[in-house]
Design a protein around this nucleic acid. Structure first.
Lengths: 204, 204
DNA sequence: ACATTTGTTAACCATATGGTTAAACTTGAT
DNA sequence: ATCAAGTTTAACCATATGGTTAACAAATGT
């Protein structure tokens, strides 16, 4: 039954939908545009995904599933907090430079639809902070780190890494950078941000 | 001609529009809903603002005009970098707790419509970093601060302050906080974030 | 070969949506 | 009282939009 071409129709739809939803959001996306981008008839969208809502959810879950593993790097491995921060900052920034629409898409749709997050949490693999918190507290009591609330630290790490992608147009305008300069600016954050955090928390 | 009631129709429309646009975005907003919230006929929206686009722009400029002065606190006063950071962190977080929809609204629509920011920059009062950069560099050469790129520092300050509002649903889910706990969490950032930054940059 | 399932399309439908119009109402000036 | 300008409304309009249908094509099983 299935045509084993380069890509199945179902996948082509998902790719096109990802494109359109991530750049225009749920409300701004048009089923016709998705169909056009996928090079197929609009009816096919409904044949495979039943409705705009369900197609959207497929795209959204896909996007989130791409992000979660990135977080688990910092949350669930066994290295020191310093190493976690350095490798996360580096990897996460690299990852985001390849998927610039992702953070805005997720943050935005999550804000628009509060109970989305509930569905996600039921999923296994949803990031869990416990191990990270324990490690932070251990290193504090060992005198490696200055006292800090682990949750605040975690949010700080996320903030410093994600924010430049979320508010790219704003930061570009403030710092008067063009696309190339902005890229370099973000590139240098791969290490700058880690240094900034470590400086703040590491006992001297 | 003008009725000098409690609020003019024009203002009622703007208030209703602010409400709807800020919570649903340009694409998700409906002119009918705005009219209903303002308690007037849909035709009035066009009578006063001509089109959805223009009404939206009125709301957007309004929102941005509310934010810009907050930034000028840190950018244009004469106190030390440490004092700037402490007062900005405190004031900005207080301000955001009163206008929780603002950052997402602005960031999001700016992402959706790149040339919006060009219009804003033409406006006087658009935040300018020069004075801040000069002050940072002065304090570095005076040995008050560790060497750091002023723009990176500025983005870090913004990131740490704005991010918790931008990604409230995500952070709430990660840290498993309810509304009340989240408010406390953010409240304590009024000083925690400033300490975190100062720790990192201040020469010891 | 032929029937059955799966995939695909063009045409269609109901409704929602931003926007317009023409008539009515209000108000302040003369 | 009358007029003109500004304000407000109900009804209307063209189009866009998500979704459906029915017929057709391709593949698969027997």
């Amino acid at each position: 039954m299935k045509k084993e071409k380069e890509a199945t129709t179902e996948q082509q739809i998902l790719d096109a939908a990802k494109n359109v939803f991530q750049s225009k959001g749920m409300d701004g996306a048009r089923m016709q545009e998705i169909a056009d981008k996928a090079g197929i008839n609009k009816a096919m969208l409904h044949y495979y995904y039943r409705s705009k809502q369900l197609l959207f959810e497929a795209v959204f879950k896909n996007a989130f599933a791409l992000l979660a593993p990135q977080l688990n790097i910092i949350l669930n491995d066994d290295s020191s907090i310093e190493d976690k921060i350095r490798s996360f900052t580096f990897d996460y920034t690299s990852f985001m430079m390849k998927h610039p629409y992702l953070p805005n898409f997720i943050i935005n749709e999550l804000n628009r639809n509060e109970n989305f997050i509930i569905k996600l949490k039921e999923n296994s693999g949803f990031p869990n902070l416990e191990k990270f918190k324990a490690k932070v507290n251990t290193e504090i009591s060992q005198g490696i780190l200055n006292p800090i609330d682990a949750e605040q630290l975690f949010v700080n790490i996320l903030a410093l890494n994600i924010f430049p992608f979320l508010s790219k147009p704003l930061v570009k305008a403030f710092t008067e950078k063009d696309e190339k300069n902005y890229k370099e600016f973000v590139e240098s954050r791969k290490t700058e941000v880690a240094d900034f955090i470590i400086n703040s928390i590491k006992r001297t």
